[in-house]
Design a protein around this nucleic acid. Structure first.
Lengths: 114, 114
DNA sequence: CGGCATCCAATTAGATACTG
DNA sequence: CAGTATCTAATTGGATGCCG
């Protein structure tokens, strides 16, 4: 399921890879940042550890994020965008641009900080 | 749920609007095309009528697609991108570009026609 | 033709507790 | 700290049948 399957359109491929509930947000926070699990959790409090782990594992499995585990006590794990993940930035950015306009024009709610 | 809520990042807004299982595909088929319900069904056979209706209603509710019902017998309904929906084309296109590259590099499956 | 209603199966997500 | 395990709740999706 995680490996490429046939898509009726290429757009579908993207949704399959980064369409998960928290994936774009995770990716968003990882642009220009290497973050530990805990830091991600603080940035995305609406995601439970379980969900965060799951989404991160999928992103890792798809080669979008790097997971670097330091064999120390207490544990330390760092997440960052892989080379492949970096290639998604233009997509994320076009989404961001549109999202900003949308929120502006919808004008019903304000962005929460960050 | 369909109206704007607060997003921790604008990217999330896009996913919420067009992240639905068939939404990007629907949108994809509606670029440059006005299609009837039946035609959409043929283009997207993996979606049941129920799902298609549901996704279309959400897209309509979000002002992304226009639904034009002709009061004739037998019924005739045409779907097309709204002005707002047209603004999504750059996003869809950046996704498409990336998707094409992804599929190429994954190189495990071929695009089905169209 | 373009749906909607109903019922059910499957998938996804949350809460909570626990561990190397 | 960075998760896992388990159980349950909610959401999503499919099959089928019917209707204006």
């Amino acid at each position: 399921m995680r490996t490429a399957k046939s898509f009726s359109c290429p757009v579908e491929a993207v949704v399959n890879l980064i369409g998960g509930k928290y994936k774009t947000v995770i990716l968003w926070h990882l642009i220009n940042n290497t973050l530990r699990f805990n830091q991600l959790q603080k940035q995305i409090p609406q995601a439970t550890p379980k969900m965060l782990t799951q989404q991160l594992r999928e992103l890792e499995h798809d080669g979008i994020v790097n997971r670097k585990v330091y064999p120390v006590v207490p544990p330390k794990t760092e997440y960052s965008l892989s080379q492949f993940g970096l290639s998604l930035i233009p997509v994320l950015d076009s989404m961001r641009k549109w999202g900003v306009e949308y929120i502006k024009s919808a004008g019903k709610q304000i962005l929460s900080e960050k």
